[in-house]
Structure formats: C-alpha cells, structure tokens
Design a protein around this nucleic acid. Structure first.
Length: 749
DNA sequence: AGCACGCCGACT
DNA sequence: GTCGGCGTGCTC
C-alpha cells in the first residue's frame, strides 16, 4: 500500500441547521489523525464546536483569508465508517436537514461525550412538606417557571425522582434543580442505581423454540429463503393480532445469527416492555436492549459492544436503526405502521424507511410486521416492491372476537345523568364481570371533559395562548390546555353572560372512570393515562396487578391499546371511536381503522372468547365498518382509491412546511412567499405536483405562536428535492418566522 | 441553532 | 443618560 500525501483540507459537518459543509485547514501536527469519520474541534463563528470530518480535499473554494484551522482531533479511530456516513448523508438530503444534525442523532450522547459517569445518577428529593412546596411553587411561578415545574413534578411523583426522569417530565435542565437545592427546597445527591430499571430483568430461562404453525412456517420459509440469499429485500409480514409474528422473527433471527450475522429489531418505544425483553432474552444470549432509561454510560458501553461484534441481536426503538452492527443481516420493524418510528423533531426521519435504505446498502433483509400495515407498505407489496406473507389465524385457533358497533346518536342518557357508556356496553361489561372476567375500556382523551362551555350563550372556554378549547381535569380541579400545558382554575360563572352553571362537555378517561364506578361500585377500576401513570414504574405495576386480576376494569388511553395480552379480558370497549375521524389529515381514516383493529385484538385469546363494543356517532363509516369485520383488505382497497383520486401518498410523496411566529401577518406572508416559490418551481417541472394550502394549521395558534402550513405532494422524491432546494433560502429563520420542513409527515397537527 | 451587533423603550 | 428587548446576519 502506498502512502498518499496528506490532504490539506477537511470537510466538516457540524450540528447546525445548515445544509452545507465547512472546510478547515488541517494543521500538520494533527494531519495523521484527521481521517474521514473522526470528530474534530473547530472554530465556528465566535464559538467552538465539535464536527465530523466527512471528507478530505486537496483544494477548497473558500478564500484563503476565510479559512480557519482544526483545533484538535477528538477520536483516535473513526466513529463512523463509510456506510454510516453514506446513510446519514442520504437522510440529511432526503429529509432536508443538516448532515451534522443527522450524525448527532445517529450517535448516542454517551458516545459523543468526553467522559461518561458510571452508574452514579443524581437523585432529587423535596425537602419541604407538600403544602409548603406547593406554596413555594406558586410563589416562583412567574419568576422561574422552570423551577416551579420541578416542584410540581416532584409533588406529582411523590416527592422524589431521578434527575433523568425529572428532566424529561418537567422539561427542565440541571441548573433549575441546582438553584432549588441552593435554596434548600430540594435535596440533591448522587446515588448508585441498583435495580430501579424495570427492563433490567435478571437471567431468564432459555426455552426451546416452539414448533411453528403451518402458516408461521410459510412466513419463516420465505424470510429465511430471502435472508439466506444475502441480498436486499423487504418482506411485509401481515399477521392479525396474536398470530405469532414474534415467534417468526425469533426463529428467523436465530438462523441468521447461526450464520454469523446480526439483526436489529425495531419496536415502538411503548412496546419495549419487560415482556418483550424477556422474550428475546429467552432466546439470545448476546443481546443488547437499547431503551430510554439507559444512562449515557450504559448506552456507550452497548454501542461499543455492538460495534465490536459482541452482540447478535439489538432491540430498541427508533434510533436503534443506527446500531453499528458489523455484519448486518436483517432489520425487523415490528408494528411498522406505528407513528413513533417517525421522529417529531429534526432530523425528522422515519426509522422504518431508514431501515429499508440501510438494508439496501448493506445487502440485508427487512421484515416489516403489522396487523394493520401502513397503506404505504401495503401498496409497496401490491406493486411488487415488497413481498407479502400473511398470518390469518391466531395462535390456539381462536377466532378474532366479534365487534359490535353501537350508534351513540340513538343512545339516550340512562337515568337522569348523561352517560358515555351505552346500554349495550354496560350489559357486556356486566356479563364479563359476573363471570369474574376482566374489561378494558379505551378512550382517546385524558382528563374529565374536553370542553368547558356555557349552554345559555354558547361560550366555549379557550386557552388564551393557543386558541384551542381547554380540557377540564377533575382530579386537579383545573382547566388544562393540552397544547401548551397551561393550567388555571375554571371560572365560577360564564365570562360572557355570567351564567353560574358551566357545562363540562364530551368525554375523557376521568369521566369514564366515574361512570364505571357508578355502574359497578363493587368492582375495582383503575385509570391509566399520562396523568395517573406519572410515577416511576406505575405503568408496570398497574399492568402486573391487572395480570394478577387484582383489577377488574382498566380504563385508559393509547397506552392500553397496543400489545397487551390478557387472556381473562372478555369485554373491550372503544368508548368514542370518532375522535381521530374529523382531524383534517389524509390519514385520519387509516388511523381510526388501525385504532379499532388494534383495540379489538386485546380480547378473544382464550376459550372464554370475548366481545368488542365500538361506540361511534358514524356507524356506517368505512373505517369503522371494516375494522368491525376485521376486513383490512376492503378498507385498504377503498382507502387506496380515495388516496389515488386525491393524489395523496402512497401515490405521491408528501412534504409539509409549517411557519410559525408571534406576528400573524408576517407568518402568513412568509408561508405565501414559500408557496409562490414552490408553485413557480412546480410550473417549471411540469409534472403532477400539487400544493394544498397555504392555510392556517389545524392548531392555528400554540403558545402565542400563529401557525400556517402547506402540503406539497409530488410524484417523486427527486422533484420534491428540486422544490425544496428552490425554496431553501426562504426556509431558514427570518423576520421572526420559523419554518420547518417535514418530509413524509405522519401528522398534520 | 447560537451568538453578537444594532437600534428603540423604562429605569438606577 | 444606560440596561435590555428581540430583529437580522453570519458561521469555512
């Protein structure tokens, strides 16, 4: 090998929202260590940043007087190899963000950090009694809202918490906690974490893989046939709930591992439960579980183990798609339709789609599993881009439960009080409970009531900073804006007409819990939503209590809709199926279908059978009708036809641009300027690109910011790229307006 | 995104 | 007269 002369310039990607690289001169002293894939300290404007060397060059277009020198080199060996650089570059390009932003998202913080602390973690405890703490919270509310949030969150968590949890839940950083500690409001100490981690389950007994059913074997055969070829491919595993998809993954991965390659398993964050971990632990010795509770140090350790080839299987949420396995053979994306694979901050990548791109480059196989595949994936299977295999039967041969649709427009209030539990649902619950079986009620909204209004003058109480109707939470006796989190006491009388009787309309988890208690006073009912499950491990504890049948009825939000498997549950109710249906979003019908189908999967898994009651005001809506018949194909056919007619995905690529800022007029002008540039570019392209909007965003005002948006649908990613490049200069922050670009958006809110 | 420069309102 | 608000421009 001949030694090539050292290159004088390095191309560096830094974590700023700029879609360009910066060239630096390499000082001779550092020349040997500056290689592609290492991180360097560089002067950037008036500050010093860490950036990634992504290229070396003999020349630069930057004038001599502008170029600056690399200060130091942070790594002995490159952190990123060519394939990871290529992948992150593609992501930056596709999702229209900075390469450095993607690189920082792809490497865990612990790996980027200089030194990481061991298992010592900050522990925070309230020093004041609750009443005094509450008084202090009110006192500092104005002056230091961050500190007030710390106190409030601590109160909610029972007076103590790990700093990491506090940071996440109160959205604060260390300084606010320290100043509270200085004032003696909280005590701050370092503690060694013992077994507080719910996913840190001990050794698990290894089990012999069960024999696959004929259907599972067919799926297994297809996957392993493709996997054995060692070429890129995507298999869509469409299996009804409880059809044993996981067993297929486990056995296919086991075979892959025996061949010396590694697998990544992506699951939605909420599915990363002890149950899931136990499953994988019972089969794989060399397993890495990447979950949100890991400390930076632990993450770093896992990352290095993975890169050294000491791990066969990596299981984790979204960002695990970047796990540096040396011989990638397979990426499984379980529940591939889930929204949580899409990051809702920059870089706005979808891990499912990144998995496909990574696998294509690595010659690996992707397995997408779902009971309700995203229409994009389903369509890719129809047109032959993916191979599809179905699991139609459930394990044990039990049928899918019958689903009854209750028309709530015909439902009369029972007794004097208006109830959101229909006669039919109540009767079904009574039957189950009388047999000593369990019930799950699903309601997509927390709190007591989603509207506070006056029935005399029609006044609706709105958040004065967000312009959305506020929710009433009876537990806190407060009105809470679910948009900005602001709380205030409900007014005694109507602010418009002084009517002393305000009306709490609509239904949330608290009200359902109330109704249930009123109907079945001798049964235990627990409510599960983000309000009641704030304390550490509360969720785990309630679920295991439910499993032990110490709870008869579970009332909850999204968090109980997915993945739970309780054989004693024989009635499942969807209290109000319509909530998603009227959101102005081309995916709202698909979401409703998925929701009802997923919730329906929570029962009928044993000889007791089970029934599902879906309450709605639109019983004839195709999304609800098809879900009630467990008829994915009819729904998909009808919905695809709608999407085709309107040119929405999967028949186009969508991109959403949102502008927000304090000054409504400026925001509107900015989005219109962007729309103008987009439409002139579209005219030049001369193909089937459509611009929807600009219009006020569905949440037109959040935290005093006005929001306008625009949806572009284009026939190809290439034309979208052309459009975004043309509009690039308008998309950076200007005149008090912030613009964001969301390629393949999952939500229009 | 940061960070500083720069130009208009309420205070020691 | 200054301290400080956030609009604007720039980062190899």
């Amino acid at each position: 090998m001949t030694e090539s002369p050292p290159k004088p310039y390095a191309q560096v990607a830094v974590n700023v929202p700029l879609r360009r690289l910066f060239d630096y001169r390499i000082p001779e002293t550092h020349a040997p260590r500056v290689r592609v894939g290492v991180r360097v300290r560089v002067p950037f404007g008036r500050r010093t940043l860490t950036g990634y060397v992504v290229g070396l060059a003999d020349e630069t277009r930057v004038p001599e007087h502008q170029i600056r020198e690399i200060i130091s080199v942070r790594d002995k060996e490159p952190l990123l190899d060519d394939s990871m650089l290529a992948l992150t570059r593609w992501i930056a390009e596709y999702y229209h963000c900075g390469w450095g932003e993607v690189l920082d998202a792809a490497l865990p913080a612990g790996v980027r950090r200089k030194r990481t602390k061991k298992r010592e973690v900050w522990f925070v405890a309230l020093e004041l009694p609750p009443e005094e703490a509450r008084a202090h919270q009110d006192e500092i509310e104005k002056r230091s809202p961050a500190q007030a949030r710390v106190v409030r969150t601590l109160l909610e968590l029972g007076g103590q918490a790990w700093l990491a949890d506090l940071k996440r839940q109160a959205k604060i950083s260390f300084p606010s906690v320290r100043s509270l500690a200085d004032k003696g409001v909280v005590a701050l100490e370092k503690r060694t974490v013992d077994t507080a981690d719910p996913l840190d389950i001990g050794p698990v007994e290894k089990i012999t893989p069960p024999t696959l059913t004929p259907e599972q074997r067919r799926a297994f055969n297809l996957i392993t046939a493709r996997s054995d070829q060692g070429r890129f491919g995507v298999v869509l595993l469409h299996g009804v709930t409880s059809s044993g998809k996981t067993e297929v993954y486990l056995q296919a991965i086991a075979r892959l591992v025996r061949g010396g390659r590694q697998a990544i398993v992506l699951v939605p964050e909420i599915s990363l439960t002890p149950q899931t971990v136990r499953h994988f632990k019972s089969r794989f010795e060399r397993l890495a579980v990447l979950h949100s509770r890991l400390t930076d140090a632990e993450r770093k350790e896992q990352w290095h183990r993975i890169r050294a080839g000491e791990v066969d299987v990596v299981i984790g949420a979204r960002s695990a798609v970047f796990a540096p396995v040396p011989e990638l053979g397979m990426i499984v994306v379980d529940e591939e339709h889930e929204n949580s694979f899409k990051q809702d901050a920059t870089p706005r990548y979808n891990a499912r789609d990144v998995a496909v791109v990574r696998a294509r480059r690595a010659g690996a196989l992707v397995v997408l599993g779902s009971a309700t595949p995203a229409l994009e994936s389903h369509y890719n299977a129809i047109v032959g881009k993916y191979e599809r295999v179905e699991l139609k039967g459930r394990i044990g041969g039990w049928p899918l439960p019958p689903v009854e649709v209750v028309d709530m427009t015909h439902e009369r209030p029972s007794g004097r009080r208006l109830s959101y539990i229909s006669e039919r649902l109540r009767a079904a619950m009574a039957v189950s409970l009388a047999r000593d079986e369990q019930v799950i009620l699903f309601i997509n909204r927390r709190g007591f009531a989603p509207h506070v209004s006056c029935r005399r003058c029609g006044f609706v109480l709105r958040c004065d900073r967000c312009d959305v109707s506020v929710n009433y939470h009876r537990r806190y006796r407060k009105c809470i804006c679910h948009q900005c989190g602001r709380e205030f006491n409900p007014p005694q009388t109507c602010p418009e007409c002084a009517n002393p009787k305000l009306f709490f309309g609509g239904v949330g988890t608290e009200r359902v819990e109330d109704d249930v208690r009123a109907f079945f006073p001798d049964k235990t009912c627990v409510r599960m939503d983000s309000d009641s499950m704030k304390a550490r491990n509360a969720l785990e504890e309630v679920l295991s209590a439910f499993r032990r049948h110490e709870i008869d009825i579970l009332v909850g939000t999204q968090m109980i809709a997915k993945g739970l498997d309780f054989p004693r549950v024989t009635t499942v109710g969807v209290v109000w199926a319509d909530t998603q249906l009227y959101i102005p979003d081309f995916r709202s019908r698909e979401r409703t279908f998925q929701l009802v189908a997923q919730v329906a999967g929570r029962t009928g898994r044993g000889e007791r059978g089970g029934v599902v009651i879906v309450q709605t005001s639109v019983p004839d809506d195709p999304a609800i009708r098809c879900a009630a018949r467990h008829d994915y194909d009819s729904f998909a056919r009808a919905e695809l036809e709608e999407r085709r007619r309107h040119g929405f995905p999967p028949f186009s690529r969508a991109c959403r641009i949102v502008c927000h800022g304090r000054d409504e007029e400026r925001v509107e002008n900015q989005i219109e300027a962007i729309a103008d540039v987009v439409s002139t570019t579209v005219e030049k392209l001369g193909e089937g690109t459509q611009i929807h909007g600009p219009a006020p965003a569905p949440l037109a005002r959040v935290k005093l910011d006005y929001r306008f948006h625009l949806l572009i649908t284009t026939p190809s990613p290439q034309s979208l790229r052309t459009i975004l490049r043309a509009a690039d200069s308008l998309l950076s922050r200007a005149r008090g307006v912030v613009s964001t670009v969301d390629v393949d958006p999952m939500s229009m809110l």
